[in-house]
Amino acid sequence: MTLTADTSPGTARGTARRWRERLLSGGSWTVLALLVVVLAVIVVINPSFAEPVSLMAFAKKAAPLVVLAVGQYFVIVSGEFDLSVGSLVGAQVVIAARLIDGEEALTWPVLGLMLAFGLLVGLVNGLVTTLLRVPSFIATLGMMLVLFGAIRLWTGGAPTGALSEGFRVLGRKGFPDVPGQFQVPYALLVALVVVGLAVLVMRRPFGRSLVAAGDNDVAATYSGASVWWLRTRAFLLSSFLATVAAVLIGGYAGVTAQVGQGLEFMAITAVVLGGVALGGGRGTVVAAMVGALALEALFTLFNQLALPSTIRPAVQGVIIIVAVAYAARRRRT
C-alpha cells in the first residue's frame, strides 16, 4: 500500500478514508471489491450460485486461470510478458492426448515429458529475451506461433488420441470422491497450493530481487543481481505453471483443437486487473489471483445474463485498457 500521511488511524473518519483510498488505489483491494460486487450481482440474479456446490463448480472452472495468472505474474512483475502460455497449454494437452492415447500406464511418463517440454519452452523464452535481447513481447509472440503451428503440423489439424482417466482426475474430480455429494475440487487445491507457494517465493530473496529487477534493472544489476537469470527463472515458472494449467484444463474440458486459445490474454488481463503494473516492479501474487477470479466471475455473470460468449474478447479488451489507464492515472498523481 502506498504511504498516506494524512490518514489518522483510530478515528472513524480516518478509517473510512483509509478504506476509500485502499479501494480506489487500483491495487489488490480495488480488484477484491470488484470481485465481491460481481459475485453479489450474480447471487442477486441467481440465488442458487451462493450454494456451496455452485461455488465449488466456479472454483474448479477458475482454477486453471488462477494458475496461469500466477505464472504470468512472475514474468510481468520482472518487467516482461509471456504471450506463449495459451499455445503452450494447447500444445501440452494435444501432446498428452496423442502420446497417452487412453493408456493408463503412460500417464506418469507423459507427465514427465510434458514437464520437460514446458521447462524447455520457458528456458528458450527466457534466454531469447535476456541473452539475445529480443523484447519478450516479440520472443514469446514468436514462441506462441511456433507452438501453434508445430502442433497443427504434427496432428494434421485435428488432435487425435485420448487422455487417460488418471490424467483427468486433477481437473475433473474432487474430494471426497463420492458422486452426488459435496466435494472440494482437486483443481481448487492445486490453485491454492500454487498461490501459497508463489506468495512464499515472493517473500524470499529471489522474489524481492525479481520485483527490484522489474522496477529498475540498472539498479538491480549494479547491486549485483544477475538480471538475465532472474528473468529467465520467471519464464521457467510461467511455462511450468502453464503445464500445470494444461493438466487441469485437459482434465476439465478434454481435448479439442481450440484448447488453450486466447488464454495468454486472459492471464495478462487477470494480472493487470489485479493492479500489477505492466513494465514490472509493482503488484502482488494475491492480487493476480483475485484478478483471475474477478475476470472469471465477470464471464460467469455474462452467462447468467445470457449474453453470447462471443462478447468475451471485446469485454476483455475493454478491461485491459481501462485497467492499465486506471493504473497510469494513479501513477501520474
Binding site: R204, P205, R208, A212, V218, A219, G224
Partner: peptide, 26 residues
C-alpha cells in the same frame, strides 16, 4: 536511475544487494 528501485520499500532497497548476491545472509 542506478542506485534504487524507487517503487520498492526502504527495507527492500536496504537488502537489495544481500538479496541479489548473498540470499542466505539476507
Amino acid at each position: 536511475s542506478e542506485g534504487l528501485a524507487l517503487g520498492q520499500s526502504v527495507l527492500a532497497n536496504a537488502r537489495l544487494v544481500l538479496d541479489a548476491v548473498l540470499p542466505r545472509a539476507s
